[in-house]
Simulated scan of single mutants.
Amino acid sequence: MNKKDKIIQVRKLYKIYDMGEEKVYALRNIHLNVFRGEICCIFGPSGSGKSTLLNQLAGLEKPSRGGVKICGEIISKMDENELAAFRQKHSGFIFQSYDLLQHLNALENVALPLEFAGVERSIRQKRAKEMLKRVGLAKRLKHYPRQMSGGQQQRVGIARAFVNRPEVIFADEPTGNLDSKSTKEVMEMMVDFVHEYNQTLILVTHDQEMAAYADHIVTLSDGSIIKEEWKEKEEIYEEKF
């Protein structure tokens, strides 16, 4: 991993909610660098601001102050149409609740990002089949979500997130609904894909065992970063945008 290749930069980021006469600071003065090829874990207890920070990084919410820069573009200044196009090109998502479309089978769910990207049908079908094979579901192509276990549904979610080779994958408590065996399998799959394709994984969790998979752990409390840890200690270069 090249520590000078910053794929995500966050500067002076605040998220403030107006609750009547009271202001609630969900995020306070966040400064953060995430590097290409890195597995970055946003860690902390419930209510610490983890999901709010993920939403900011993914462009799902606008900051109250400050900025987020991803792949060289300041997403915090984009409108909704620009953000949708940016996410389609650069991002993949894995959710705790799987978020598969119930009326589509596994193959159709995985092929969906390729369809949105304008990839022709024969190519997207081939690539979706390859990804489902990679996650151990070659015999489940025509199965619908209701016909699969939680672990199998999350494998479909992983295949869908990675099929278009996005530069950044966002995973919000991706194993929260899984047993320990499925959790280990799912995490190892994600780590293998990230390393193979030199992608960046942003992982939100409150689970210390999950955090152990990360190269970079960002610990939040009350909306602030209280600790950052790296497996490999290297100098981190700051730059303005």
Rank of each mutant, 00 (worst) to 15 (best):
D5N: 15
G37S: 05
E22A: 05
E238M: 07
A58R: 07
Q147S: 14
G59Q: 09
Y237F: 15
D18S: 10
I39Y: 01
I226L: 12
A159P: 01
K133S: 04
K6H: 07
G66R: 14
I39K: 04
F162A: 02
S224A: 15
S97D: 12
T200F: 12
R146P: 00
V10D: 11
K126R: 13
N177V: 03
E38K: 06
K6I: 14
K240R: 14
H206Q: 09
S182K: 01
L107G: 04
A117Y: 10
T205K: 08
K6R: 02
L112M: 15
C40L: 10
Q147E: 15
E209S: 06
S64R: 06
K6E: 13
M148V: 06
L141W: 06
V191A: 07
G151I: 02
V119K: 13
Q147W: 05
V110Q: 05
G157L: 05
C40P: 05
I236A: 04
L132F: 05
L112N: 10
K233C: 11
S122E: 15
N109I: 04
Y197S: 05
A211E: 09
E22M: 13
N198A: 11
S182T: 08
N55D: 14
F95S: 09
G49S: 03
Q199E: 14
F170V: 00
M189L: 14
F43R: 11
S91L: 15
G59S: 04
G66Y: 09
L53C: 11
V68D: 12
F241M: 13
E130W: 06
D79G: 10
R146T: 09
C41I: 13
V191E: 08
E232Y: 07
E80L: 05
I169C: 10
E185I: 04
Q125G: 05
S122V: 10
S97N: 13
I225H: 07
